[in-house]
Design a protein around this nucleic acid. Structure first.
Lengths: 144, 144
DNA sequence: CTAATCTCTAGTAGATTAGTAGAGAATCCT
DNA sequence: AGGATTCTCTACTAATCTACTAGAGATTAG
């Protein structure tokens, strides 16, 4: 039940774009540097996220990537599913086994719902807001 | 976020033992047959579950495996963690990053809690009970 | 036109997964 | 005691996946 490194890179990349929303397109190199992601690997990931319709891009000088829709309309679940595939164990049935010969399909559905209640309700806008609040608190504590 | 085949085999095996609790030890071959698991692979899994303290065994004729504690004291989470490792993304921090430079550790904690609320509250006793109820209902429908 | 940047195809070392093979050790039955 | 049965332990492996790297090609801004 781990998230792949690729999946986590994808989340970080989208988060990076979300925190620079409505600015000029962000260059791959910039994201790679800020998020500590190998640039060439990141290129593949961003391209895949564009295929999925989550990002847009522009080439050339002043090019870069940007969110294809507002940060409050992209969820963590969207990105994870698109990069890593299904988020919960997909109901694997043994040969000649019907759905209710086994107690597990029901269990996996509960797991799916539990996971979904977190990742499909968390948008990148949420992440950015929370993160900014946390940073603000830290600055305040400094000053005291 | 998938459960490995090995993990699912482990769950099925413990479930099989739980549905034959308080009977004589169950032979590997019997579990392998009923649950459709390659026997040699199952041997490794059962042995690992024994190392974890979940199962006991006896060799020789009339030997087999059995639960080391009652089925209502073994959870799905116990088995999954023991076979597949951590159930939620473990907070990976980038180099030189403190826990609140990033919004993700907090996210992963929520995921962990959500998952835990399912797998750590589901015992094999629960699974057996639900499964028997489901079978009972099916028989009733047949007769109508 | 050219420099900057994204895009696309290919390759790849190392780890992991899902097994298999086979000999050894304990236990029960007669 | 002897033999059959069953778990136990170590070693090996084919195939797949992961996390990358390399390099040439296509777009765009100025």
């Amino acid at each position: 039940m781990e998230v792949s490194v690729k999946g986590e890179y994808a989340l970080r990349a989208v988060f990076d774009l979300a925190s620079h929303e409505s600015e000029a397109p962000v260059k791959i190199a910039k994201i790679a540097e800020r998020q500590q992601i190998p640039q060439k690997f990141l290129e593949l990931i961003l391209s895949q996220l564009k295929q999925g319709g989550y990002l847009g891009s522009r080439r050339g000088a002043d090019g870069g990537y940007f969110l294809a829709r507002p940060a409050d309309q992209i969820t963590v679940g969207d990105i994870l599913r698109h990069i890593d595939g299904p988020i919960a164990p997909s109901r694997r049935l043994q040969q000649g086994e019907s759905a209710d010969d086994s107690p597990f399909p029901e269990l996996w559905e509960k797991v799916e719902r539990a996971l979904s209640s977190v990742v499909d309700r968390t948008t990148f806008s949420d992440l950015v807001v929370r993160w900014k609040e946390k940073r603000a608190r830290r600055v305040v504590n400094w000053q005291i």
